[in-house]
Amino acid sequence: MHELSITQSLVEAVLDRTGGRSVTGVNLRIGPLSGVLPDAVRFCFDVVSADTPLAGATLTIDESEGRARCRSCRDEFVLEDMFLLCPCGSADVEVVSGRELLVTSVEVA
């Protein structure tokens, strides 16, 4: 489960930025094409943040949608899965969003 190491890095990055202040909330954006499972991050967050200034902090994850643009027909569409195929049938698509793995904000006490 690579989400454990990703969550450890997330907690370390927040601790580096907050300077040891008590953190009450962490807000993330995770796209469906990032390869990261939001539920696994939620589980790991409580374990990794224990005994740190993030212990007990609320983790909020915005699960954005994947979007792509077809280079053939120029249509922009939602990616329902990992198959990068336009409804017109073309596989010549550009991913516009959905690969995000971002800390959008941190709330400190």
Rank of each mutant, 00 (worst) to 15 (best):
M1R: 09
H2W: 07
H2D: 04
E3K: 09
E3L: 05
L4N: 10
L4E: 11
T7G: 10
L10M: 10
L10W: 04
V11W: 01
E12Q: 15
A13K: 14
R17Y: 12
G19L: 06
R21S: 14
R21V: 13
S22N: 12
T24C: 01
N27G: 10
L28A: 01
L28V: 01
S34T: 08
V36Y: 04
V36W: 01
V36G: 06
P38V: 02
P38E: 04
A40S: 13
F43Y: 13
C44V: 05
F45H: 09
D46G: 15
V48R: 02
S49K: 06
A50C: 10
D51F: 13
T52L: 12
P53Q: 07
G56S: 07
I61G: 01
E63H: 06
E63N: 01
E65S: 12
R67L: 10
R67D: 00
R71D: 15
S72A: 15
R74I: 07
F77C: 05
E80C: 06
M82A: 14
F83E: 14
F83N: 14
L85T: 15
P87K: 07
C88A: 11
S90K: 09
A91I: 13
A91L: 12
V93K: 01
V93F: 00
E94R: 13
E94F: 05
S97L: 04
S97A: 14
G98R: 06
R99N: 09
L101I: 03
V103L: 12
A109H: 07
